[in-house]
């Protein structure tokens, strides 16, 4: 039997204590152990951005981290963006601007957009494009994603971070 490692972490404001195998990726832990399947897994080598989460305030690709490494961390996944039934302003802007089609890339892009707007409430188009450069979207061509982030920036100069 592989050795199990105890971890304790906060995801979307909820504290979890679990034991994991050392080799379990954070992405798989979120999806399989916590059943938070909003975090998507595309490439498993850091190239597509689908698995992006916010860890201790910064974006990270959860396919390039082990669950054991997140011991003690505070994580925000796409499930933590919306407050109850209402969409987060960035999610609403994506809906309004038609910034998603199949939606596979969307959870990751939303979190990068969120991290960007936390740091820079009025990004230029170039800054937005840099901010989402770690994401591959096979559907939209990015134009509407950029528009949505601009719209969200206008609406929410200071969007509150929902991870409590």
């Amino acid at each position: 039997m592989a050795r199990m490692y105890p971890i304790k972490l906060t995801v979307n404001g909820i504290e979890y204590e679990r034991t994991v195998e050392a080799r379990k990726l954070l992405a798989d832990f979120l999806r399989d152990d916590l059943e938070l399947t909003g975090t998507h897994v595309g490439c498993e080598h850091g190239a597509c951005g689908a698995c992006t989460v916010i860890m201790n305030g910064q974006t990270a690709q959860s396919c390039l981290m082990l669950a054991v490494q997140a011991d003690g961390a505070e994580i925000l996944t796409v499930e933590g963006l919306a407050d109850g039934a209402g969409l987060h302003p960035i999610q609403q802007a994506f809906l309004d601007c038609h910034a998603l089609q199949c939606g596979f890339c969307t959870p990751g892009v939303l979190l990068s957009a969120h991290a960007l707007l936390q740091e820079n409430s009025h990004p230029t188009e170039e800054e937005i494009r840099q901010g989402i450069s770690g994401h591959i979207c096979r559907c939209t061509g990015y134009v509407n994603i950029v528009k949505a982030i601009q719209a969200a920036a206008e609406k929410t100069a200071v969007a509150p971070l929902n991870a409590k």
């Binding site: 050392a22 498993e44 080598h45 850091g46 396919c63 981290m65 082990l66 054991v68 490494q69």
Partner: peptide, 23 residues
């Protein structure tokens, strides 16, 4: 940071017996 090593582990191009996380 794992940004080069983790892809190698995921693809099993690296198979160390021990991983020493210096973070």
């Amino acid at each position: 940071g794992g940004q080069s090593l983790m892809p190698l582990l995921n693809m099993r191009l690296a198979r160390p017996r021990a991983l020493i996380d210096i973070n």
